[in-house]
Simulated scan of single mutants.
Amino acid sequence: MNRAATTKPVSAPLAPAEVESILQEATDVLQTEGTALIKLAGRLNRDFCRAVQLLAECRGTVILTGIGKAGLIAQKISATLSSTGTRAHFLHPVEAVHGDLGFMRQGDTLIAFSNSGETEELLRLIPFVTSLDIPIIAVTAHDQSSLSRSADVVIALGTQTEVGPHGLAPSTSTTSMLGLGDALALVTARRRGFKPEQFAAWHPGGSLGLQFKTVRDLMRVGSRVRVASEEQTVREVLATAHIDGRRTGAIVLVDQQQRLSGIFTDSDLARLLETRHDSLLDAPIKSVMTRNPTTVMPDLLISDAVALLSERKLSELPVIDQQHQPIGMLDITDVISLLPAGSQPIQNSSRARAA
């Protein structure tokens, strides 16, 4: 089939005045919502602190609820709490009165999102929640609503001016809820002593989880690392230091005590040949190796190791133990996806020294 025949016709370019109008509208939306967040930050008081205390001391589950757009915000904050060390669950107000109330227990804490504080479906939950002596945190516009009067802690967002056509669609109010919810979750995480290692354990997938692995998790070991004695000649090392699988561009050299003494890379070999020092191929490799190369310990976070590779423009990092003996090799090809955008490490470079 001819693709050109099925492609939608390209619209005519927008006139300059229309481009300016669209961008101005978008700017107004962002500025209005940004201003609302700044005002909200200035409104925070002891009620926010009391809410954090309730969440930090919760020994059960933090239940988040809301309906419509507020419900979507509640779901997002539930996910943020869960990923930062606070057990949380979203409860849909309608599903709640059809059986889902059953998972609520004493020891839980409820966060209810409602801009008006008069959402009928939400208010139906309150008698059951209070009967279990579950503390309620209300995130709402004002402290005089029906929801507010039933809550133990009220975090008032203040009057919100919704943006967009006719100011009807929840926009500024939900942005404020989202910002407030993130603040609650992240401050609570700090109060609970949440650590990066926990974050790594709960985010094993994707590049985010990869950043929180350690060098030990990704380093090459055993027969995948080329190791040779510093007393061998360059020619002997090149002839015997074979490895299984994908080849790394560096050879780790050790002394008589099997401690790392240097590193010899493909770039080092290329320099010997380019400068016509072929005779050095039959000299001990310790005379041409890079001494004191940059090394890392196996428990270093991968994110820190990648930063070192990028900063020093390296392609390999020997991994050593407490006795300075090589136990692995971190190769840039195994972590290339984590390098900062625009980073250009020098392939097989070994000239950077440890600080």
Rank of each mutant, 00 (worst) to 15 (best):
L301W: 15
A88P: 13
E274K: 12
I136T: 11
A79R: 02
V187R: 13
V227T: 13
R59W: 00
E118G: 03
D278Q: 14
L122I: 12
T161M: 03
S145L: 07
M329N: 13
L101I: 11
T80A: 12
R220D: 00
T32K: 11
V288M: 10
Q323L: 07
Q232V: 05
N115L: 02
R43C: 01
R190L: 12
Q53G: 10
R149Y: 01
G60K: 06
I327M: 11
L281P: 09
A283K: 10
S173A: 06
F264M: 08
R216T: 00
H142R: 13
I38E: 04
R353I: 05
V234S: 10
A241L: 03
L81H: 12
T174S: 09
E197F: 03
T175G: 02
L317F: 12
L64P: 08
G102L: 07
E274R: 14
H142L: 03
A201H: 10
V10G: 05
V29L: 14
G158Y: 01
P13T: 00
V52Q: 12
L218Q: 12
R276Y: 03
I111P: 14
T333L: 14
G164A: 02
V319G: 04
D255E: 01
A70N: 08
R276E: 13
H277Q: 15
I336D: 01
R224T: 00
L125N: 03
M329Q: 10
T35F: 08
L54W: 06
V94W: 09
V319F: 13
G205Q: 08
N292R: 04
T140I: 01
K213A: 00
A354H: 08
S287V: 02
E236V: 07
E311W: 01
I332M: 09
A79G: 12
R192Q: 11
L54N: 12
S310M: 06
I285V: 15
Q198R: 09
D299A: 09
D182I: 02
R353N: 01
E18A: 13
L260P: 14
M289F: 09
V129P: 15
T240E: 14
V94I: 15
L132P: 15
D152T: 00
I263C: 08
